[in-house]
Write a protein that binds this DNA or RNA. Sequence first.
DNA 1: AACTTAGACTAACGTTTGTTAGTTTCAGAT
DNA 2: ATCTGAAACTAACAAACGTTAGTCTAAGTT
Lengths: 196, 196
Amino acid sequence: MVKKKNTKGSAKKEIIKNSAAKLFKEKGYSAASMRELASSVGVEAASLYNHINSKSELLHTICYNVAERFISNIDEVEKQEEKAIVKLERLLRFHISEMLDHYEEVYVSDREWRQLDEPYLDEYRELRRDYRKRFSAIIQLGIDEKEFKEIDSNTAVMIFLNAMGAIDQWHRIVHKIERLALEDNFITLLLEGIKK
Amino acid sequence: MVKKKNTKGSAKKEIIKNSAAKLFKEKGYSAASMRELASSVGVEAASLYNHINSKSELLHTICYNVAERFISNIDEVEKQEEKAIVKLERLLRFHISEMLDHYEEVYVSDREWRQLDEPYLDEYRELRRDYRKRFSAIIQLGIDEKEFKEIDSNTAVMIFLNAMGAIDQWHRIVHKIERLALEDNFITLLLEGIKK
DNA sequence: AACTTAGACTAACGTTTGTTAGTTTCAGAT
DNA sequence: ATCTGAAACTAACAAACGTTAGTCTAAGTT
């Protein structure tokens, strides 16, 4: 008797994916066990495999989902005929709202992607490199057009990307200060530093 | 026959600690195995225990070493009778040079401290909270004295601390652009954003 | 020459890991 | 009432884990 695997979005699969994201975020991918995940879903470990194929598939799904959103966003930003500073602001605002709306997933994809196994690890590394390059090109454009200071664009990208990483404490803070206020704080600090 | 443990700084223990930092950085603490560490030191896994007491002790040492340096630095900064902007610049420059000089250790302490076990995990969480508070107080001082813009000081701290997290790619970049240039890029971007 | 000891080794331990096999359950369709 | 199939279960697997016990080696001290 062969079992069919749910390829489409069953409700349970979604629950597992979400629980996994939360667990991976709290413990780290490697330290999180399938038995722990199972119990957080309210099921035995073996039962998970009625819905998923492997632990690594869960991480893969999380990482590639996030990557896809960021890439399709920068696709759009590049298309627009705007000044570099507008493009940069759009990128930053997208980063912020992604973090607020997809907290665990974005966090996990950022800190745990190294645990992907080949060939996806290499491919993912390439995706990240590519994204940074395109981000950097937008900044360089701003520098060339005298909109921005003459800083090293790669350094700037890294600062921007990593500034976004503090999601952990954010979630606590976002209840205290308003979401929009947070966003503006961010934009102020990061954008004013680069403006000429 | 009871074996004495090397409590003082044997050369081998230092080698193990450094290899551990490098390995923990590359694979993550949980995914890194003692057998892997041993082989990177050129020894069998069991032999490591002639020099160390446990895997978790290695992480503990790394994290607390780093914490001690950061705390004693902010101790000094607080003592100085200077404007907030000078204090902030000193903090930022210290962060940067720590990352450049103690690459792996700082990276590991920042990303893997959650893998500490109790009671050190709680204690370390407290140390981090305390550091952020003191950092935040310095920024708030600058706001009160009208040196800085009226941003949320906690948000600013998080941006600053996390901007520092991009050490990974830095090490590659620091060979391309000069160390001092990197530092100045950083200071420009982060400090100009907050200045009034 | 005999003794000591640091530090390597091999072998093994008890756990925990991700995962598979095979069985049971039970709601919905016939 | 019977059949079906998804999804739970129990039991077990082999592999990998951190760690311990006990032994061997070789350099240094007496």
